[in-house]
Amino acid sequence: MLELRQQYTFYGVLLYVASTIFVLYLAMQQPESTVWNGLFWMIQLFICVNAVAKSFLQESRGRMLYFYSIAGPVQFIVAKLIYNMLIMLVMSLLSLILFQLLLGNPLINFWKFVGIVCLGAMSLSFVFTMLAAISARAQQQAALMAIMGFPIIIPQLMLLMRISKAGFGEIFKEGAFSDMVLLLTGLDVLVVILAIILFPFLWKD
């Protein structure tokens, strides 16, 4: 069911991650921590658009028909969600390592930041999987992904940037940090539930 056969896209995205971060390194050398944080999340966003969007937009009509015949919509979307989540986790952790190597290490609380990165990768991949499923039904798919995706993802991205400051040693108000983490987790759960409910309507064609 999972499309591990398409290894070339995987390596393509891998190369994309490496080269973007290298270009960033050439442009910025070693930025200070706020810039580092902002750049890191922007790169995550673009990696996500590139990696996840491909999962739906590149499917040919014949392949979709094949999936249609072997699996139900719920199984299909769950498989997609899990697959994209794993890809995004790998990519984010990889880009975190590359950031550490090339752009310096302003992190004080490393493991907390890793946790936040995993959470962020999950949220990004879930939202964009769903959006890719929607925009795959329309024309000018790639442009639509950006138009629909960026406004929807901005609140989550702002939250992520906010809490990732914990990684730089910022002290939060009592309870505020766990509140925001809970909110993000709640949003993730919400997206998954919505995807499972709504995807069957996109499926029948």
Binding site: V127, I134, I152, Q156, L183, L194, L198, L202
Partner: peptide, 23 residues
């Protein structure tokens, strides 16, 4: 597709604009 996006966007948007400003 419009209906699906409308529901999805609404569900993503409103928790955030009701909760984040309070934080």
């Amino acid at each position: 597709v419009g209906a699906v996006y409308n529901i999805f966007a609404f569900a993503m948007l409103f928790p955030t604009i009701w909760i984040i400003p309070r934080l």
